[in-house]
Nucleic acid binder design. Structure first.
Length: 479
RNA sequence: GGCCCCUUCGACUAGUGGUUAGGUCACCACCCUUUCACGGUGGUUGCACGGGUUCGAAUCCCGUAGGGGUCACCA
């Protein structure tokens, strides 16, 4: 039975790297008809952020990643929040101590700092010097009776080579002498990631651990833990995902731009586009097709085809994908997303009108935000005019023609795409000029910019009175 | 610095011994066109380097270089 888990710590927003990890776990589970589990790793009380779990749930729902077991839906192997399982970790840590696989360490933070500094000064990698590793039973008892705070550390065997198979990287080996006697249980009684992770993965019967590459170098510690517990036979398979990178190829970080899924949502990205884009960062089913629905991703996903090298999170392609998805949406679906933005800007329009705007703008939009940012002239007269277009189109001749055209517009009884086009073209013909000589200045006068949807449908939608007022106003105010 | 991982166009990638090294984004040109966008056509740009192995290497091996990750009582 395939059982995988997404195990975030609730420390705030959801990083797009986490999103991809969650997605791959989800795709892998769904592809194989397995179980997708959400486990909240909140063992660091100092980093806990209020509301982070709720935010996480909301974000997963928004992108369409679902869970079969987790804090909200429960399940056979709960609880799924680590802070509710501390007793389990404690007894497991005690068992390791009893079996001489771990030991109690009474070193102070100051001493540890000191040791690390010394080792670094000697050009050694900073590791714990195993000072408490060989305390006698009596010494330990004495310190415990004296109430000296302590941690429990893993007794890493010396002189072994630890090899494990990674589904994306093949066999990976580490010398045990390079592995620190890792803290398993902190002095506050909470487990560290390593202990909690291994204990939970075992008890939750996790079959595959799919996580970011930053965990690769701590995997031997986990392997050692499985061995110490005698769980080697049920050790999960590991798959370490390539990192998502900044443009400078460092690990994707907040400092260099948006990394929170929430940021992308706010900037007008569609969840389908984000998912599609992120899915193809580090994995590719064919290389000829670029657009995949969630169901297609599920049916095509193969963990073995995940790449080894990190992938730069390049926004241009995401923008392109977003525009592709916007074009595929129905006006009604878009209306739902655009309407709140329009209301937030203080514009008051009917759904019918807004939907017409959406239809006209849909093909020229890269973000949902563009429906208000680049379409404001549908809701209000332009407050400024684009300089470049003005220079090119707002000539004395153009103004003269518009002033002649204005009364013709006013006199029109029918106001629609065809009648407007006919009027403009016949006027242009009567003056023996190209229609473009009219169209461009008109666009500028009415919209304030030099680009946009077809002029005739635009004028038809904005309405005769408003159009005439804007022409009038431009003739007076635009120099 | 130790350890580990990685290396095909600017970016995402296909490619598993024989290809004119393919696709997508971006970029450029042209076409379409009332602008923009869409669409269409074409184009510039790449196997990090050096040695092997082989009739033949982007593909296999070994080095070098470069990049990244990790070395907490954080995950």
């Amino acid at each position: 039975m395939i059982r995988v888990r997404f195990a975030p710590s609730p420390t705030g927003f959801v990083h797009v790297g986490s999103l991809r990890t969650a997605l791959y776990n989800f795709l892998f589970a769904r592809h194989h008809g397995g179980v997708h589990i959400l486990r909240v790793e909140d063992t660091d009380r100092t980093r806990y952020v209020d509301g982070a779990v709720e935010n996480l749930l909301r974000t997963m729902e928004w992108v369409g990643i679902t869970f079969d077991e987790g804090p909200t839906q429960g399940g056979e192997y709960g609880p799924y929040t680590q802070s509710e399982r501390t007793e389990l970790y404690r007894t497991h840590a005690d068992t390791l101590v009893a079996n001489v696989k771990a030991y109690r360490c009474f070193c102070t933070a100051e001493r540890l700092d000191e040791v690390r500094k010394q080792m670094q000064a000697q050009g050694q990698p900073p590791m714990y010097d195993r000072h408490c590793r060989n305390l006698t039973t009596d010494e330990v008892k004495g310190k415990m009776d004296a109430g000296i705070p302590h941690v429990i550390r893993l007794r890493v065997p010396l002189g072994e080579t630890i090899t494990f198979n990674d589904l994306v990287r093949g066999d990976v080996s580490f010398e045990s002498k390079t592995i620190d006697d890792q803290v398993l249980l902190k002095s506050d009684g909470f487990p560290t990631y390593h202990l909690a992770n291994v204990v939970d993965d075992f008890h939750m019967k996790i079959s595959h651990v799919i996580r970011g590459e930053e965990w690769l170098s701590s995997t031997p510690k986990h392997v050692l833990l499985y061995r110490a517990f005698g769980w080697e036979d049920s050790m999960p398979k590991f798959a370490h995902l390539p990192l998502l990178l900044n443009p400078d190829r460092s690990k994707l970080s907040k400092r260099q731009g948006d990394v929170a899924v929430e940021d992308f949502r706010e900037k007008g990205y569609l969840p389908d586009a984000l998912i599609n884009f992120v899915a193809l960062l580090g994995w590719n089913p064919s290389a000829t097709e670029e657009i995949y629905s969630m169901n297609e991703l599920i049916s095509q996903f193969e963990i073995e085809k995940v790449n080894k090298a990190g992938a730069v999170f390049g926004k241009e392609k995401l923008d392109w994908m977003n525009s592709e998805y916007i074009r595929k949406k129905s006006p009604d679906e878009l209306l739902e997303m655009v309407k709140p933005l329009v209301i937030a800007r203080g514009y008051d329009v009917t759904d019918e009108y807004l939907k017409s705007v959406i239809v006209l703008m849909q093909e020229r939009t890269r973000s949902i935000l563009d429906f208000v940012d680049f379409s404001d002239y549908f809701f209000d007269a332009p407050k400024s005019f684009e300089e470049k277009s003005k220079l090119k189109n707002w000539t004395p001749e153009a103004k003269e023609r518009l002033s002649e055209l204005l009364p013709i517009f006013v006199a029109m009884t029918e106001w629609n795409h065809d009648s407007i086009e006919a009027t403009i073209r016949s006027y242009a013909e009567s003056k023996a000029i190209s229609a473009g000589k009219l169209i461009h200045p008109l666009r500028l006068a009415v919209s304030g910019v030099g680009m946009g949807p077809g002029l005739f449908e635009m004028l038809a939608l904005i309405g005769k009175n408003e159009v005439c007022e804007r022409i009038q106003s431009a003739l007076v105010n635009l120099v």
